[in-house]
Amino acid sequence: MLLKNSQTFDPAPFDTISFDLASRRKDVIIMSSDLSKYCQVVRVKNELPDQHLDVGMAEQNLLSVAAGIAKGGYIPIATCFACYITRRAYDQMLICMGTGSGPGTNQDIGPTNIAIGFTPGIANPARIHHQAAEDLGMVRAIPNATVIDPMDPIDFRAAVEAAVGRPGLTYIRGHRGDTPNLLDPSKFNFEIGKTYKLVDGKGLGIITTGHATGWSLEASDLLSERGIDHSILHCPTIKPINEEEVAAFAFEHDQIVTIENHQVVTGLGSLVTEIISDIGGGPRVTRLGLPNIWAPGGSMTHIRRVLGLDAEALANRIGEL
């Protein structure tokens, strides 16, 4: 389901995704908190102004106004940097957007509330304050929430489209700027929860998500050159993930490595170990990603090199296992 030898980039994935969606669905409102340009909400803002709403530099307001708009019959898609939309406004995400739908609430099917966090993890060059290294862990702790970390413009688009039809809170990590086209849209069929085996091998199994799926594919080429057989499982849905598929993949392999653009604490690595340890007797899991230290700033290329997450370092670390 991967494109062959693709070296193309989508310069502004969400600009097209949001414009196409808002053109088709007049009940969708794209919301910003002073970062429309920096989340690439340009065409909707300029060409569909009735469907764009900016609440100013106020992330708590972004999510609480969004929740009010949802109760008024619209589908809000709140956009901001991942760090602010989760850390700064976590209570509004949980209480205002997250308590109106599903088991344990008063409504089986409540309003749809969507939040998209851009430049997650080390995709933002400004260290610490602009880097959301804990957003997946925070949001996956919210009951009934849906959490998606897409790998490229194709599954990002599919995730947004799926979220619009889904009651309750959905949090999606967004891609911004030149984003590599990796998936073949004619062969990739997105479903919430489903996992995707991108490389089929034996022995070593890599489980990955989001930006790190691209990193894993880079490392995969080096591993193949070195004769290290391996598989790669892409997990765009962090919650509710298909645990049976993750477990089946894990138990097919002797050694599991998780790779994520997120702290190894509470993120995908934690999730995979939870699934496997609940069953017991599974393979060893090595968690690669952002360590529980303050990451440096700068380009993603630089930060990956410092943290041992560039293709060469990943291949070396995996090869040493």
Binding site: I29, D50, L53, Q60, N61, S64, V65, A66, A67, G68, I69, A70, K71, G72, G73, Y74, P76, D91, Q92, I95, C96, T99, G100
Partner: peptide
Amino acid sequence: EITAGSLGQGPSQSAGLAWALRHR
């Protein structure tokens, strides 16, 4: 209309609701 135990979230949620109702 809202989960109201976490204080201070009504003014903006009601404003969002009022915006949506006027919009439609």
